[in-house]
Design a protein around this nucleic acid. Structure first.
Lengths: 122, 122
DNA sequence: ACTACATATGAGCAGATATTCATATATAAC
DNA sequence: GTTATATATGAATATCTGCTCATATGTAGT
């Protein structure tokens, strides 16, 4: 009974196809990788950030230029840039008062564009 | 004064580089596309869904098998499958009581794997 | 030192999200 | 029909997110 209760806590149904399930379990993505991939996609999963990244993929821009281009407040842009920095999707350099942002590398750009292309043809 | 207030509502700073900004504005991704791409990435932006999709990319699985593989409740899996269906990331067929799910197409699989590869080498 | 400006950040709030629990729906076996 | 099983879904809840507003930090010019 204790055992039955424990099993229920994990999975309350029992239609399992043992070989398939054990194979799939062996090939299951490690939790850490899944979490990191999810965080990457999550950082891409906001319309404001997609607009920003798409613009930054074309050219380096300073914060207030980004704000002007996508028509959002400087504060909102700055907060979102922090998210993008945290996910290593953008890099930046300081020049006097300005901070010039650009997309981090071509892999990020490729991923972004692939997502955009996918919805364009769907 | 009314005008100044309106401008502030859009962008309260004024360090714009006019040519760069107007170029970037011209190339700005349409709002609708940005929204759709964001929704696509958002659907990929959860560790549970990444695990599910990664498993479904390898083979077709029924709901309770998915639950067993990723060790989550049937209900939680079913709710997440709805999200994945909504984003057209998975397809399914009914066979008696069972629902067999698989990844929708190779573009989705490619996008997923590209994201996973990116975090693996980062 | 003082002012102006560009950017970053913390608090607060409104809306979204992921899970659990209970239940509904649908199919199959008896 | 009744019962068992597989899946779907609604409600409730706790957590997270994205924005605004106010303010802090840092740099340049006077």
């Amino acid at each position: 009974m204790a055992i039955k209760k424990k099993e229920r806590a994990v999975c309350e149904v029992s239609c399992d196809h043992p070989e398939t399930v054990s194979l799939a379990k062996k090939e299951l993505i490690p939790a850490r990788q899944a979490q990191q991939a999810a965080e990457l996609f999550k950082a891409l999963g906001d319309a404001t950030r997609v607009k920003m990244l798409r613009a930054l993929a074309k050219r380096e821009l300073c914060v207030c230029d980004i704000a002007a281009v996508i028509k959002m407040s400087q504060s909102a842009v700055s907060h979102q840039l922090r998210v993008l920095r945290g996910a290593r999707l953008v890099k930046y350099r300081k020049e006097g008062k300005r901070a010039w942002y650009s997309i981090n590398d071509r892999h990020v750009a490729a991923l972004l564009l692939q997502g955009i292309e996918h919805v364009r043809h769907a």
